[in-house]
């Protein structure tokens, strides 16, 4: 049955469905309990599942991830929330040195079915310690998977798959998209990790975009359509494992590629995708791959500055036109 749902509700429905199905799934993090999470994403879950399974932690990011590692290695399937993606830095050791590596380092003796949920992204005037997009820092680490839904249906389906996965999955939710409504069919179930989605089919240029940038790409495509340029937009949905085949098939058709993310452009994850396209599909390309990202500055606070920092539809339009 289809209904309209916010992105936030999609995440919550995903978590709740997973928790109803498996008593070993638990949610913990700062203020996720009675308060319902800083952004209200887990609102009502404390009432449904109780204080044992929906647990408030002290403000201790490192312990939150370490706790998830220990819990996952001994039989739970924790969903650990790090309130802001920026705060992942406080727990980076636990995420990168323990969650990500211990399966390999123990030769598979231990495994870590756990989800790290975290709110990334800018656009709400939260300044540089509450707005970052750190996809590159996460995807750089072997042993982690990462998903980043751009709508409520994907938020729901990717959560189901993330919880069911036997590996640590970082689940990024964009804080500026939480109230964004879209149509959801809860009967559709899990969306496999590593499977992208053609959000808009087209024939002239391939635009790979994640998170909130999917919506900027859609707006750009509308503008470009008036010029007679037909954009194909791909939302990989999972950053690792990445659906490169979908991108390659699209570029075989369009021969042009633009990659867009909200990270600062320098060293961003989309640089990796751009490199993969150039390395593997050079002969199909009619123009160099173009990366679009944020300015290489900390995220500014002022409403006058933040929009200048962020990449937008206009940037995408310009980039497509520049490819000729």
């Amino acid at each position: 049955m289809k209904k309209m749902m916010t992105y936030s509700e999609g995440i919550r429905e995903g978590m709740s469905a997973a928790m109803r199905k498996d008593p070993d799934v638990v949610l913990f993090g700062e203020d996720v309990g009675m308060f319902g999470g800083c952004f209200g994403v887990s609102a009502g879950m404390f009432d449904e599942f109780g204080p044992e399974r929906v647990r408030d932690t002290p403000i201790s990011e490192s312990a939150i991830i370490g706790c998830a590692v220990g819990a996952a290695s001994t039989g739970l399937r924790p969903i650990a929330e790090i309130m802001m993606m920026d705060f992942l830095t406080v727990a980076m050791d636990q995420m990168c040195n323990n969650a990500a590596k211990l399966r390999f380092m123990t030769g598979g003796a231990l495994h870590f079915p756990m989800v790290i949920r975290t709110a990334g992204g800018a656009g709400v005037n939260a300044a540089a310690q509450h707005s970052q997009s750190l996809e590159a820092w996460v995807t750089h680490v072997p042993g982690l998977k990462m998903v980043f839904p751009s709508n409520a249906q994907d938020a729901y389906g990717l959560m189901l798959s993330a919880v069911a996965d036997d590996n640590p999955v970082v689940y990024e939710e964009h804080k500026a998209m939480l109230a964004m409504e879209s149509e959801v069919d809860l009967d559709e179930g899990p969306i496999p990790l590593g499977v992208g989605k053609v959000v808009r089919p087209g024939s002239d240029v391939t635009i790979v975009a994640v998170g909130n940038m999917v919506h900027q790409a859609l707006a750009a495509a509308e503008t470009l359509e008036k010029d007679g340029i037909d954009c194909e937009i791909i939302d990989p949905r999972t950053l690792y494992p990445f659906d490169f085949d979908m991108v390659a098939n699209s570029i075989d058709k369009t021969h042009k590629a633009i990659v867009v993310s909200e990270e600062v452009k320098r060293g961003g994850y989309m640089g990796e995708i751009s490199a993969q396209i150039s390395e593997n599909l050079f002969d199909s390309l009619d123009a160099p791959v173009v990366r679009i990202g944020a300015l290489n500055t900390p995220v500014p606070f002022s409403p006058a500055l933040e929009p200048i920092y962020l990449p937008n539809a206009e940037d995408i339009v310009k980039a497509v036109r520049s490819q000729g």
Partner: peptide
Amino acid sequence: IGANGIVGAGQSISTGVGLQI
């Protein structure tokens, strides 16, 4: 649940084991 090369890592991992119990 593992020796560990990061000094202090086992402390937070133990909290998860404790939670599971």
